Simulated scan of single mutants.
Amino acid sequence: MSDEMLRATAEVKYADELEYLESVDDAPKPFSWRLSPKMVRLFILGSEPSDGLDREIPQKWFGDRTFVERSIVTLASDRGLLLIGDPGTGKSWLAELLSAAICRDSTLVVQGTAGTTEDHIKYSWNVSMVIAKGQTRESMIPSPIMTAMEKGAIGRFEELTRSTSDVQDALISILSEKYVSIPELDDDNIVYAKPGFSIIATANSRDKGVNDLSAALKRRFNFVRIPVVTSRRSEAEIVRFRTTELLRRHRIELDVPPTLLDILLQSFGDLRTAAASAKSDDEKLESALSTAEQIGVLEDAILHSHFFGDRTLRAQTLAGSLVGSLARRNPEDLSILNKFWHGVVEPRSKSDGGEWTDFLEGGKQAIESLS
């Protein structure tokens, strides 16, 4: 079934694992949860021999286990969960995995934008049915959040700080009172949240000041800050995991040489160091240089090699993808990358040689073509 989807949700993609874990799970479960907190953690972080399972459960989210545990504990309480961090730190992926493990439905999502309205988190009306039969429960269109309330499931709110203060304020009563009133109806005009309902929201820490959360709304959430991955080993695991999924999804048979993965990781590490020492925003790349962006660079290089190359990933192609992906402002980003290539990549090419030499030349060509 998942092969027929461009991107299967976590509960579809890992349906077999979830069914297995539920069948062997004898630990207490909060509310209507499908898995116990321990099994939710195991599903997300992977199994170990000490868990005593007769099959291996692979790790799906790479980060500090305390972030996962705190998130699970929060959802087992009556508070909402707010995952906050830089772009590309895996907030949405963690939210999806949590929802899939807890209620087997990660699709009850509201995307926060400047155009998000209160109707998107409460309800709206089917106009044709209202004209024909009037305002009834049947003519009401529940939002994903209201559907989550009725099912006792997890509702997700992506990019909470992108939505306006009116929309954010509407969440306060939902998180506090756990019901939504429908004043247009005379009877059956209150939707109560069933046990198990909660909200996982995400927020981009770089959006600070866009639509800051009120103190009242902050009190309704437990904050879990997801930092940028700085461990070279963890980052390599994430990139390998995502790359394997990419190759499988596109049905591509192509090896990623470990030396090229090291070059990619080293380059991003050096770029982050340069950004940290920059004296102004003009000296920093617009890119957040996140792990997700590394995966995007590698994906671009793999697809380019597969469709337009000789189906072998080469350093020159990787360099071109890196420059093309990170050079978003012209001429600012190109100038920064040009300095980086001559000041960091070129000396490393002279000292280490090998693939670094081709990487150097590929980057120079890409910068020149974009200048």
Rank of each mutant, 00 (worst) to 15 (best):
R104Q: 11
L254A: 11
L217A: 01
L18D: 09
T147W: 00
S205N: 10
L264F: 03
E184N: 10
E69F: 01
I131N: 14
K133S: 09
D3W: 04
T89D: 07
S92K: 12
P30N: 05
E361Q: 07
D26P: 00
W356G: 04
E22F: 00
E368Y: 08
P258G: 02
A236C: 08
G296I: 04
S290K: 08
C103M: 07
R137H: 06
V24C: 11
V180K: 03
R249K: 14
I141V: 07
R225H: 13
S267T: 15
E69T: 10
T357M: 02
E159H: 14
L298N: 09
R220L: 05
V344E: 10
L171N: 09
H342I: 00
L260W: 11
I367W: 00
V24K: 12
G354Y: 03
T317W: 01
I84A: 12
F307W: 13
P195L: 11
I226K: 04
N204M: 07
G155T: 09
G115R: 10
F67D: 11
V40R: 02
V167S: 07
L75I: 04
V127W: 13
S321L: 11
V40T: 05
R242I: 01
D310W: 03
K339F: 05
E299F: 04
D352P: 00
V127E: 15
G320F: 12
D187Q: 15
A216R: 13
S198Y: 10
G269F: 05
T136R: 14
L326G: 07
D169E: 15
I131M: 15
I72Y: 05
